[in-house]
């Protein structure tokens, strides 16, 4: 069983290389096709200074030549210098920002999975009763309210009024500083996960094999744990992979509101500033994360469903 799974994993990782190359190529030319340049915001630069800046960063070369140089550097693991954050190269910026965003994202997702998953399971078991309706109403609200609304409310209430938690700031990743951003990030995820889990459960609870399990005289607890949960988690797994990649690469809104040094800010500001190497670097990292997490979610499918396992051989 393990050998085919390993072969499957290696095959998928091998395919990931051309995929990443395609992502790098597409984002390189798309960035250059956008109007404007990296130094446009610097007011009234002397044309001579501008020209030397372009030369220093190799932007005076023909586009295809720039592309060739860029790819060669990336393959060596060098994402190049940032055009805007002058003292940093892109690798350093990612190394500063990604761990912050990833830590917030993973914590938020675990929280959302724990509470959203539980709510979804209980709601399905109490189908059409009060708990079900209340949870699903709250979940709908959680999905509908954007984080730029919940985040300031959380900061205002717990930070300013109750003075329980810091309003903003990272403080080296102290637990107190993480609480509010993690909650703000987790709420919509929690709501989506609760709905997916409930849907999966309801679908499976109707299945014939659940009736068989009950006909065996198993108590409902054992029916759910041994015969329902594994199949019911399948819709969730497909969602979690890409969602985790998204949440790990940072949320601009949350990072701005709580003043966090995450990667989401670099990405948006890099795009606005035409900081070509920075945007490219983050896009490639994001792409790699998506590919990796999709692979993990395919492996999770295989773990949950023996029929899928067989198709991977």
């Amino acid at each position: 069983m393990l050998a085919p799974m390993l072969a499957f994993t290696l095959r998928r990782l091998a395919v990931a290389i051309p995929t990443l190359l395609a992502i790098a190529t597409a984002s390189f030319f798309l960035m250059r096709a956008a109007p404007g340049g990296p130094f446009d915001t610097e007011a009234d630069l002397d044309p001579e200074v501008l020209e030397s800046l372009y030369r220093a960063y190799g932007l005076d070369q023909p586009l295809l030549e720039q592309y060739r140089i860029y790819l060669a550097n990336v393959l060596k693991g060098d994402f190049g210098p940032s055009l805007v954050y002058e003292d940093f190269n892109v690798t350093e910026l990612i190394a500063i920002g990604l761990p912050v965003s990833a830590r917030l994202g993973v914590t938020a997702m675990l929280l959302a999975l724990l509470f959203g998953g539980t709510c979804g399971i209980v709601a399905a078991l109490r189908h059409n009763r009060l708990f079900d309706h209340a949870t699903m109403t709250m979940a709908m609200t959680g999905i509908a309210i954007p984080s730029f609304v919940t985040a300031p409310i959380l900061a205002l209430f717990f930070g300013l009024y109750l003075k329980l938690l810091p309003v903003a700031g990272w403080n080296g990743g102290a637990a107190a500083n993480m609480v509010l951003p993690v909650i703000a990030l987790a709420l919509p995820q929690l709501a989506i996960i609760a709905r997916l889990m409930r849907g999966g459960m309801l679908e499976v609870l109707r299945a014939n094999f659940v009736r068989t399990a009950r006909a065996k005289g198993l108590p409902e607890r054992q029916v759910v744990i041994n015969h329902v949960l594994q199949s019911a988690a399948v819709p969730l797994v497909g969602y979690l992979g890409p969602a985790l990649a998204g949440i790990m690469t940072g949320s601009l809104v949350i990072e701005l509101i709580f003043d966090l040094p995450g990667i989401g800010r670099y990405f948006i500001q890099g795009a606005l500033n035409r900081d070509y190497p920075l945007v490219m670097g983050i896009v490639i990292v994001y792409g790699a994360l998506i590919i990796l997490l999709n692979l993990l979610s395919d492996l999770a499918y295989a773990a949950l469903d023996p029929r899928v396992r067989r198709t991977y051989r």
């Binding site: 299945a207 009736r211 015969h227 469903d305």
Partner: peptide, 8 residues
Amino acid sequence: LSGLTPTA
């Protein structure tokens, strides 16, 4: 087929 749990 539908009466036996597919994952067990």
